[in-house]
Design a protein around this nucleic acid. Structure first.
Lengths: 175, 175
DNA sequence: CAGAATACGTCAATAGTGCTGACTTAATTG
DNA sequence: CAATTAAGTCAGCACTATTGACGTATTCTG
């Protein structure tokens, strides 16, 4: 019984391989890709004293102007308290405005201002450039495949949010 | 001059469109995909009192056993202080061990223990399953395309890290 | 060999994002 | 009118990450 109280502490010297049926290569690439994907806007946001959360809120308010606070929480999958600080800052800095819901006056519809629209576009520009560059680099009819792949990575029960996507509604023109 | 001190606060009611040449659809999909990609391991980690950072450290120590602290910092692109707590916890719980560098005794080579290896595999399993499922769903010769795309999303100067990938070295067998 | 540089560890303070739980206000619904 | 709902807010906590500073052991360099 020469073991440590925390169990066997012998070093394993062999690297994990795909033997276990686990695709470590793609797991790792997904991590690197997302890290760099978010790095450009992150740097810009720092100038405003904002973080990644501000970008996400700004993004969805620009994508679906007039969405309510509850809808935004549902899309972001965060709590009301997490959203509160971020949203308040965006309102105080004149990037987002709230309008009382026309049907239900308890609701607050969220809209971007001109400033908020501009910032959202500025933040997304380098991300779109990166995506476009990557699609070009990989050649082929890539985009369709990438879109299918990314969509398939999302939890099935959450894909409704994606189908709510205004652009998709235009393309698919359902109902 | 009826403007607010913070500028024009008039709501913009139109959703941003691709007109601006920005691929909001893929930007959004990338966000959703990554969020769900990390959700499975995040839930497991909570049982150990660990976070996403622990997973990343565990991942790379398993992928490149014997890497030094400095190398790990370089791969993760975080600071020494950010790594410190996380690494200490993983060592204290017997998931990782440190060995003094054989050539340079200042260095600490990091290795997974049996426990650390098991946890890394357990965490990666649902991620790999999700990726595999998505590749199947999209049909075609997908995997190659996805790998090319994700790699192309990474900052060019950082792709050396990916080429250091042990699995890649096996496949490409350069030198 | 002495001094500089390096690898690592650690201390203190701070920021950003997220969480839970509890409570208030206003408006709608039954 | 009572119950429910939408939103806002308060207090407290956890995790990840940051910067700056300092100490120690080891290696490298002139």
């Amino acid at each position: 019984m020469l073991k440590e109280k925390n169990g066997d502490v012998a070093p394993i010297r062999a690297a994990v391989a795909n033997e276990d049926g686990i695709d470590f290569t793609l797991i790792e690439l997904f991590f690197f890709a997302y890290r760099d994907f978010t790095s450009d806007p992150d740097q810009m946001l720092a100038d405003y004293g904002f973080g990644r959360a501000h970008h996400r809120v700004l993004h969805f308010v620009n994508r679906r102007p007039g969405l309510t606070v509850a809808e935004l929480l549902d899309v972001l999958k965060i709590t009301k308290q997490s959203l509160a600080r971020v949203l308040k800052q965006l309102i105080d800095t004149g990037h987002i405005v709230q309008l009382q819901g026309p049907r239900d006056r308890r609701q607050r519809e969220l809209y971007p201002t001109a400033r908020g629209r501009e910032l959202a576009l500025a933040l997304s520009r380098p991300q779109s450039r990166r995506i476009h560059g990557a699609l070009t680099e990989m050649k082929g009819e890539g985009r369709k495949a990438i879109e299918q792949f990314l969509k398939a990575m999302v939890n099935p029960e959450l894909r409704v949010q994606i189908d709510d996507d205004p652009l998709h509604r235009m393309e698919e023109d359902r109902e």
